[in-house]
């Protein structure tokens, strides 16, 4: 038994559509220890998003079904615990930063409205309550934590009034509202320009450092993996094909698929990667 904060054990997930069952995850295992920065990297269709959705309980079942495995959070299996118990953890103690800052916010409510609603329901699940004023204070506090220069102005804004980078900061702030111990980030910043992405990644790194959070970063970008994580899992076709400390993985990838993936990345130095693509399974 591991003492990891989050531990996915041998998870298999299948989707059933039109009477046909298609397995998509084949025994995925991964560990996220407390205060660690872990990355899950893979190309489209590798199963990284399904893994994340299984953890957060966001899979629509059916069509999805979990055929085997366990997801241990703090040693307790999320898959077997009562729904009520699980809801006390997902979205509160483990929380999520979504990918697309353009579509993850409701255009007709102000940032303050949306954030205090999230806080209200998080409190409700945990059996706490706060006055409207206290909620607003917390919202402003968190907006300050994501380095918003003028939290009051941002809180009063509608999403359309904010830039992409600001919206991504709001999404991070939303995830921090309930003081989580685990942050799951799904491709943060990939919808943004490279300079804005660099700012967002630095912010995430600083935040998890300051607040002692565990971070599970889901991405397809190997550069992002190298900059934000200290341990990495590589997914391919529904399996974890390789895992290693990040520095080790880049220095000496062991599996042919990982090597091919690393070689396919264009280098800033302009060095032609050695042609090992054919070795890919």
């Amino acid at each position: 038994m591991t003492d990891a904060l989050l531990s996915v054990r041998n998870l298999s997930v299948a989707f059933t559509t039109y009477g046909r069952t298609q397995p998509v995850l084949h025994g995925v295992s991964l560990d996220v220890p407390a205060r660690s920065h872990v990355a899950l990297v893979g190309e489209s269709g590798s199963g990284k998003t399904v893994t994340m959705k299984s953890i957060m309980g966001l899979l629509h079942m059916p069509p999805a079904s979990i055929s085997s495995g366990a997801i241990l959070y703090d040693g307790r299996d999320l898959l077997t615990m009562p729904r009520r118990e699980r809801l006390k953890l997902t979205g509160t103690d483990m929380s999520m930063v979504f990918q697309d800052p353009m579509s993850s916010l409701n255009p007709v409510f102000t940032i303050a409205d949306q954030m205090s609603t999230i806080l209200k329901y998080a409190d409700k699940r945990l059996g706490r309550s706060r006055s409207r004023r206290q909620r607003m204070d917390r919202v402003l506090e968190v907006l300050g934590q994501v380095r918003m220069r003028e939290p009051e102005r941002v809180a009063r804004s509608y999403p359309i009034m904010l830039s992409g980078g600001m919206r991504q900061r709001v999404l991070i702030a939303m995830a921090l509202l309930s003081e989580p111990r685990l942050l799951i980030a799904d491709e943060p910043g990939t919808a943004l320009d490279v300079t804005t992405q660099a700012q967002i990644l630095k912010l995430l790194k600083d935040l998890v450092e300051e607040r002692g959070l565990a971070l599970l970063m889901i991405t397809h970008n190997l550069g992002v993996v190298r900059e934000t994580s200290d341990y990495v899992y590589v997914m391919h076709k529904g399996k974890v094909v390789e895992e290693a400390p990040t520095a080790e993985l880049f220095a000496a990838p062991k599996v042919a698929y990982t090597r091919a993936l690393i070689d396919a990345v264009p280098r800033l130095t302009g060095a032609r990667p050695t042609q090992r693509m054919e070795a890919a399974p």
Partner: peptide
């Protein structure tokens, strides 16, 4: 700034 912002995968870069 643009070049400095690119996430890279090696020490040379």
């Amino acid at each position: 700034l643009l070049i400095a912002s690119v996430p890279v995968i090696s020490a040379e870069e």
